[in-house]
Design a protein around this nucleic acid. Structure first.
Length: 172
DNA sequence: ACGATGATGAAC
DNA sequence: TTCATCATCGTA
């Protein structure tokens, strides 16, 4: 049973979406080949008050997709080398997103985008088959006690926000 | 464990 | 113009 995740799934609090994405499948179609990757690591980034989020200092040329509609991809370039894959969540106008950090077999957000050939061409595209990148629920149950909550990675500068347990990892 | 990498945006 | 960053790879 495959169920395509629509915008109503993403139109919720970033923390809820981040947790619910564990065990779902990121599906990538490139050059006619379709592959599915089980999501095992995510991070939630909240609105403009979240000091760890790029939305912290208002809208910029890079972060504007976060202000768009839930269910759109937000791909940004960082450290001059890596693309990061996020899905825009929460109601329209509230700049939040979920960073997809890892899937089964691929650890790390930069490696994920490299292996799946994800770059800025997908930025602001809607998560659907026609975009070549979408998310499916394949009916797999996730046990609540197999979800680990930790602090987010690489955000030590964010004061109190750095301590919040907004990273979700599927441990089995 | 540490430096190089080098786009983007903020602070100066 | 300088500095730090939602990371990763090479070298040690």
């Amino acid at each position: 049973m495959k169920k395509f995740l629509k915008s109503n799934f993403f139109n919720r609090d970033a923390r809820i979406v981040a947790k619910d994405l564990l065990g779902k499948y990121l599906v990538r179609k490139v050059n006619g080949k379709t592959r599915a990757y089980k999501i095992v690591e995510t991070e939630a980034y909240l609105g403009s008050s979240d000091l760890a989020s790029y939305a912290r200092s208002g809208m910029t040329k890079r972060n504007f997709p976060m202000f768009g509609h839930p269910g759109h991809w937000y791909v940004y370039f960082t450290y001059g080398m890596h693309y990061m894959l996020n899905i825009v969540v929460a109601p329209h106008g509230k700049p939040s997103a979920v960073l997809i950090r890892g899937v089964v077999g691929i650890t790390g957000p930069g490696r994920l985008t490299k292996q799946l050939k994800i770059d800025k061409k997908l930025n602001t595209k809607y998560s659907k088959k026609a975009s070549g990148l979408w998310i499916e629920d394949r009916g797999e149950k996730v046990k609540p006690n197999s979800i680990k909550k930790t602090a987010r990675i690489g955000v030590a500068y964010a004061g109190e926000w750095a301590k919040k347990l907004y990273r979700f990892v599927l441990t089995d």
